[in-house]
Amino acid sequence: MKDNFSFKRYQMLLTKELKERSSIILKLAGIMSLVIFGIWLTSILITGGKEISPLFRFGMMSTLLVVAMIIAPFNLYKSYNHPKKGIDFALLPASVCEKYLSMLTIVVIITPLVIILSLVLTDIFLSLITPSVFPGFAFNANNLGKIDISSIYEIFILQWGFIFGNFLFKKSKVTKSIFTAIGIYLVLGLILASTVKVVYAEEINQMASFSVQINSLDDLLNSPVLEKVPAMRLVMYSIYAITYFIIPVGSLSGTFLKMKNQQY
């Protein structure tokens, strides 16, 4: 067991990784904060100090956080599968499990927290010095209350997919990951659409008379319409399972296997 995982070694590895990669994390956080600063500056210089609402800033910061979370693995661990640069990390005396967990800890937990902290501090600072431009704080109880767990999980699903892309592709990692993600969702959509159209043609005709407001998969699954059409409910559950279970589990386990079997 100690060969697979030792907490002491994991701690040592995490410390080493943080000491070596902290500058990249801080740089990423700095760039995201600069965007907020840029919005503030634009408002002062171009629109004459027009007020930017906390809700807009909150949305902006959330988008920046998602972007940072997606690009973080490419910035922090781009060399892992590099035939020359990757050797150093691969031969470091720690197990694949420890390397995998330290990588996830940094990319999934620490980096987003540092970026959130940096964004919050920037927003607080700017709203304190120019309350007329940045009235109130973006991170307030009202805005935070609008976040739902499934949205956060969806962001993580996206990030885990990109982490896998970083370990899977050797060149043009970002582009290939984006196109693969689009490709997977297109193929899945097409398969499901065709299945529904061919296999459940009768049910679809039944549904033609129904109307439903759909904002998310949850809405659709809980919709009373689907209760009347069990076959469609099955299809929707399949989409749900693929999106919320198979893709994230596949991304995380794929990353682990790629790290374990990477050859140089």
Partner: peptide, 13 residues
Amino acid sequence: REPGFLQELFFIP
């Protein structure tokens, strides 16, 4: 690539 092995090996490319 077990830690016990990697602790006893150094490769200089």
